[in-house]
Every structure is written in C-alpha cells, then in structure tokens.
Design a binder for these strands. Sequence first.
DNA 1: AGCAAAATAGAACATATATTCCAAATTTCG
DNA 2: CGAAATTTGGAATATATGTTCTATTTTGCT
Lengths: 270, 270
Amino acid sequence: MEEKAPATIKEFEERLIEVSEDLPKRLRQCADYVAASKDRIAVSTVAEMAEGARVQPSAFMRFCRILGFSGFSEMQRLFRDSYAGGWPDYSTRLKHLREKAEGSPSALLAEFVDVGRTSLENLLKTIDPKVLDDAVEALAKAEMIHIIGLRRSFPVASYIAYAFEKMNVPAMLHSGVGGLDNHNAIRPGDVLLAVTFSPYSAETVGMVEAAGARGLSVVALTDTIVSPLRKFGAITLSVSEVDFGAFRSLSATLCLAIVLSVAVGTKRSG
Amino acid sequence: MEEKAPATIKEFEERLIEVSEDLPKRLRQCADYVAASKDRIAVSTVAEMAEGARVQPSAFMRFCRILGFSGFSEMQRLFRDSYAGGWPDYSTRLKHLREKAEGSPSALLAEFVDVGRTSLENLLKTIDPKVLDDAVEALAKAEMIHIIGLRRSFPVASYIAYAFEKMNVPAMLHSGVGGLDNHNAIRPGDVLLAVTFSPYSAETVGMVEAAGARGLSVVALTDTIVSPLRKFGAITLSVSEVDFGAFRSLSATLCLAIVLSVAVGTKRSG
DNA sequence: AGCAAAATAGAACATATATTCCAAATTTCG
DNA sequence: CGAAATTTGGAATATATGTTCTATTTTGCT
C-alpha cells in the first residue's frame, strides 16, 4: 500500500471519501457500512464488521489496507484510542449544547432532538394497540387505498404513498395538484387514509365526510381526539406531537406512518 | 458464583458499589480503577485493564467473577453492546419481526419508536456545528432557495418547502411533476438545497452537479459521508438513519430539516 | 509465633480473532 | 470472443487474548 495510515479520525474520513470514488462492489459495501457506522469499529471484530457490510472478513481486511492500514487491528487502534474520554452521554451533551450554544443552530438542533424524542415516547404511551390493529386490518382488506394529506400533512401522506408503492400495495395519493380532486376514483371496497392536523384542511375533512357517507372505511391519522374526523366514524389514530414554536416536529407522526405502512404491507403479502 | 451477571450498566454500577465495601487489596484496586474509567472497558483487553489497575490479569479476572460475570469477555460484551446507545442490529431485528409476522403492529411500533429515538440521539452526536452554521449561513444569504428531493426524500423536501413558505422565505420545490425540471429557474445568487439518500437519484445528483458547475452554493442533506454529492463541493450534512429495504425512519432527517428551516427563517427576518 | 485460610503472581493452556493465501469467479480490454 | 487482470470467497494459519491452574505470599487468628 502506497499511502500511509491516517493518524486521526479526520484524516480517516478524508481518506475514506477520497478512496470511495471508484471501488469494486464488495469494497464499496465496506466503505458504505463504515461511513454509516464508524462508531462500531472500536468495539467490533472484523467478523462483525464484515457481517454488517455483508462481506467476507477477507474483503473487509483488504478494505483496511486500501485505507492505508496494515490490517484491521491497526485501524481499530485508531478508533479505540480516540475513544478516550468517552462520549458524554446524551443528557449531559444536550444540556451542554443548550446552554453553551444559545441561539445558534446547534442549540436549536438540541431542542428539536429533544422534542422529537419525547414525542416518540408519548406516541408509544398513547396509541391504543386495539385501534392500531383495527386500522391495519381495515387497510389490509382494502381494494385500493386512497391517501390524502395536505399542507403540513403532505410530507406524511407522500411518505406513506411511497412506502405502499414499494410494497406493491395499491394506493393512490390525492395531492390536489392543479386543483383536481379525483373523488370519482374512490370506489366501493376502497379505504381512505386521511392525515390532517390542527387547522384541519377543508378538502381533507370533506373527503372523509364524503367517503363516510358512502359507507367506506376511513382511517385517520390526526392530533388529539377531538379532531373533526372522528365524528364521521373514522378509525382514529391520534398523535400528540410536542410543538416547538410554530413548528411541528413530525417525528412521531412519521413513525406511526411507517408502522402502518409496514404492517399493512406484510399483512397483505403474508 | 452465587450472584448472576448484571444485564445493564445500571445493574453493573449497583453491583459494583455493593461489592466494593470489603474487598482484598488487589481487588479493591480493580474496583477503583473500573469505577474511574468504565468507558475503557469496551475498548480494552484484560491486560490493559489489569495494567491500569496495577494488578495482574488473573486478579482482574477474579474481579470480573466477583461481579457475577463468567469472565472478562462477558463483562466486556455488556459494555460493547450498550456503547453509544448501541446501534443494535435494528435492520435484522425488524426483518425478523416482519418475516415471522409474529409481530403485532404494536410490537412494530415499539421497534420503530426505539429506532427513531436512537437516530435522533445519534444525530446530535454526529452533526458538526460548524458545518450546520455554514449551511444556515449560505441558505440565509440566498436570493432564492431551490429545493430538490425525489422518491424517498420527497417527504423531506416537501416539508422544507412548506416551512419556508410559512416563514416567507423565497423557495421553490422542484418536484419533477410532469417530467419538467425547471433548470432555468436557477439563477446566480440562488442556492440549491438537495436531499438524497442511498440509491441517489440521478436527477438530484445531476442538478447538484449543474449548480456546482455554475458556481452556486449547494447545501446537501444526505446519508453517510461518502455520498456522491460531496465531490461537487456541497456543504454536506450527513444523517445516518437506520433503514431496511424501502424503509427509512426519517425521524432524524426531518428533525434536521426543521432545524435548517427555522434557523434560516429566523436569520433572514432578524 | 505458628498455623490455617485467603489472596496473589506468574506461567501454562485454551480459545477467539486477525491475517494470509490461493483457487475460482468475474470483469476488463484487446 | 478469448486472454489477462482484477476481484472474490473460503479455508488454512498465525497471533493475540482470555482463562485456568498452582506454587508462593500474605493475612488473620489464637
């Protein structure tokens, strides 16, 4: 190996980027895995790293040399040594960031991370397993799933649409592009999955009402239990998200969206 | 061995305190050293730990057993697994859940909540405040912000677009609806904000390349540091998120997106 | 002080882990 | 299409590391 070994984590990263431009398949897998989980290097064996990268240990070995190390051990030493002092645990780091970096983007990040975490925690506490089951059941039986979610809910709706697509679940995203709302596409046997939050958008509510009137099942992803969607007989999954300023961290909502998607997807194919 | 091994760091600490009351000299040294540098356990050999405690390896060995472990290896495993909040192998755990279908939706939910929480925690650790500042700075100075993010990244892109809109930041979401890609809308003084993940979509990469070639600033929200966007000189914010197959828990990514939006929004109006 | 019990050091042994090597598969290039 | 070069998988080997054993020392007790 021509190059000499990186002496710091920074050098390591630079070398990793520099090298990973053109790399054969297996070695690329190594590069990707390492990039994604550098922190595992210090505490893993080659075998474990190789498994993580879905590669033979010998391949991972070769990868270490390309980076300039004599072998895995030498590379690992770099990470073990610089581990010194250890990573402060989450709570201290958070506090530190908040105090020290007041007003800076990093401080904001600390706040939002914290908000997101508590939201997720709450989600687990507030979701009723029975209702979740019902929702999955209903969606799994649908001929076709119609998804609606506008404005702030649109990211969630589009995520669900993407996931369904990937899992071959017939679904249609009603985005309202061009002011068209293809109400007619909704047919008996279909199910409507509506996502909406606090200033509940009229289109969404209208769509739920229409679907309810025609006797279709409706699954609603919304905040609080007093959401207007409830009165139309929808299966209502409520997520209470911690607000920070005017901005809603969608962590919990998106988490629930993924769960719904995956659960429905597997139930259908199983 | 009367007692059985501690299963968590907390249990470990309790046991350590409980035991260290009356201990022969050498073993006391072990206890003291371990108490002072628990974090070294994960990345050291018995020999190193023994040396640190000024004790023979065999003595340290005995110490491990007194704590209830079968040996040093078992004790080390505890620390290695829980290291850095430990990214246990979520992808395989989730795959099992999915395959066995034994996972009720609630079980899935619990997993994803956990995944989301660690992702967020990790985000806080890996984001470089300097780079975040640079990104905010660049975006705040832009005449107009062009946002691109397709497929799995689309929810994130659309969320950012929504937030900018709400904060009166001039921004344009390039969604590629109808196969149109309004390259010509991008003008000098504008900034491109690109969001893309692992199977990096060609359109996004192309757009970044074009913008870079014209000398425009580019901010990239991507995974791992080896993302192809890096080579075009983009300010790269990398988020490592657990994903398997089509499913990426976007918690961390969205969190970062909100932070960016809010920081840019306030900087502009301030 | 003298004896028994406990503790210790260090070497011997066992095991886990890294590393190397080479034949087979794949890709590249003429 | 075929030869050369590269890349890969897997078994073989070397090394580092954990673990156990026992003679020796220290401690505690009467």
